[in-house]
Simulated scan of single mutants.
Amino acid sequence: MGRFLAFLVLLIPGIMAAYGIKLMRDTLFNKLLEPYPALWLQFILGTIFVVLGVGFFAGFLLNRDRKKGTVQKRFQK
């Protein structure tokens, strides 16, 4: 059960990052999606989604590795 919950916790930011990449790709091909009024806003929101999704995933992995003690000295608390 614990592994399933950890999978769900990582799945949501992963989907959010993938959606952000899709938004940025659609902006580069000048395809405006429905809820966004302008291309520049669509690109900025896509960038924010990617940064938040990847950042959460990286923080989760760093926290897990700190608990295991497998990080370098500069990343330890």
Score class of each variant (00 low, 15 high):
F49R: 02
R66Q: 05
F29P: 02
V51R: 10
F49P: 01
T47Q: 14
L10Q: 05
E34Y: 06
K68M: 05
I12F: 07
L62I: 12
F56V: 01
P37R: 13
A58P: 02
K73I: 12
G2F: 12
T27M: 15
L39N: 05
G53L: 03
G14N: 01
P13I: 06
L32T: 01
L28T: 00
L10T: 02
G2E: 14
A17S: 12
K73S: 13
L8W: 12
V54L: 12
R25A: 07
K67R: 08
R74A: 15
P37H: 13
R64I: 03
K68R: 12
I48Y: 12
F56R: 00
I44T: 02
F75I: 01
L62D: 01
A58W: 06
A58S: 13
A18K: 04
L39T: 00
P35T: 07
N30R: 13
F57S: 08
N63P: 00
F43Q: 06
R64E: 09
K31D: 03
Q42L: 08
K77C: 01
G55M: 09
L39K: 05
K67P: 00
F57E: 02
D65F: 10
L52E: 01
L39P: 02
K68A: 07
L10R: 04
K31R: 09
G20D: 13
